[in-house]
């Protein structure tokens, strides 16, 4: 565990440093409060600190106040170590944001025990943060595929559309549906169906840019939001996705399963300012056109053909 110690007395600092190193700590030693605050406020700074009260530039309580103000995301356990021992000083120290208070000269055994208490608190905090993050992930992601769930992908789409309108850009929606997926479930079972969906999710994520969004929209329906992507580029991307799904069979415990996907595309620039739900309805119409056209193809929902996109590329897509 890393620990920061701050004391302007070189002798006290060295004694502390050696005592803590012997106890297995990785020690950063500084001789003034300003340096202590700088180290502790870094996002990857130590989370355990032992601070002298009287120090040049910034005293111990001021360091505590600054750290509490600036490093809100991660908790830093701070112990004031000082020869100030009046009740008033103890209260002032704790009120400044310190978690504990030790009187100099420190007793090595007591010091170590107090720091272990700090470590237990930090470990408890780590477990709570982990649990919170786990809950946040579960609340925002589809448990089967790990993709964004429907609520989140819709929020992201709405947010992207707003940004697009503000910046006069283009957001493109791809709505993809696995062809004949019911047959997979009916003939090979739901476990295999799940394996197929997980692999499709993986291929979708591998086919988009890091700043695009992929979500599971429904059972075997996926929504992809391509940010800052115009229609010609989106068409290429959709083709890549279609090929990525169709080109290699999905390996499952029941053997390889051939899978294809039909996709509907909608570029926001073609539709003006409309809510996400309405645009999705149009993308869905395009998706059903792709299904009607024999599946395993891409169709565009476009109110008119943009001048820079060749007509053929909008209508003729390989199956």
């Amino acid at each position: 565990m890393r620990i920061l110690i701050a004391d302007d007395d070189a002798l006290s600092l060295r004694l502390l440093e050696r005592t803590l190193e012997r106890d297995g700590y990785e020690v950063t030693a500084v001789q003034n409060g300003r340096l202590a605050a700088e180290h502790l406020c870094r996002h990857d700074g130590p989370r355990l600190a032992l601070l002298d009260w009287v120090m040049p530039e910034l005293d111990g309580p001021a360091v505590c106040r600054e750290v509490r103000q600036k490093r809100e995301q991660v908790y830093v356990h701070m112990v004031l170590l000082t020869s100030k021992e009046s009740k008033r000083d103890v209260i002032e120290g704790l009120e400044s944001g310190a978690d504990d208070y030790l009187i100099k000269p420190f007793d090595p055994a007591e010091l170590k025990a107090r720091l272990r208490t700090g470590l237990r608190i930090l470990q408890l905090e780590d477990r709570l943060v982990e649990a919170r993050e786990d809950m946040r992930f579960k609340a925002t992601h589809d448990p089967l595929t790990g993709l964004f769930n429907r609520g989140v992908i819709m929020d992201l789409l709405s947010r992207e559309l707003s940004r697009t309108h503000r910046e006069d850009g283009c957001t493109t929606i791809l709505l993809g549906d696995v062809d004949h997926f019911k047959n997979v479930n009916d003939t090979l079972g739901h476990v295999t169906g799940d394996e197929v969906l997980r692999e499709i999710a993986r291929r979708l994520l591998a086919s988009v840019r890091s700043y695009d969004f992929v979500g599971r929209y429904g059972g075997e329906e996926f929504l992809i939001v391509l940010n800052n992507c115009n229609l010609p580029s989106a068409l290429q991307r959709a083709e890549q996705i279609r090929r990525a799904i169709a080109s290699t069979r999905v390996q499952t415990a029941r053997g390889p399963v051939p899978v294809t996907m039909s996709l509907g595309i909608l570029a926001s620039t073609e539709w003006g300012v409309l809510p996400a739900e309405e645009l999705l309805r149009e993308a869905d119409v395009a998706l059903y056109k792709a299904k009607d056209a024999g599946r395993n193809c891409v169709k565009v929902a476009s109110s008119h053909v943009p001048p820079n996109v060749p007509l053929q590329s909008l209508e003729e897509h390989p199956k």
């Binding site: 302007d8 007395d9 002798l11 006290s12 004694l15 009287v54 020869s83 100099k104 000269p105």
Partner: peptide, 13 residues
Amino acid sequence: KSAHTLRGMLSNL
């Protein structure tokens, strides 16, 4: 101030 620093140093020894 000086006495405070000296006290800390001496008590550690």
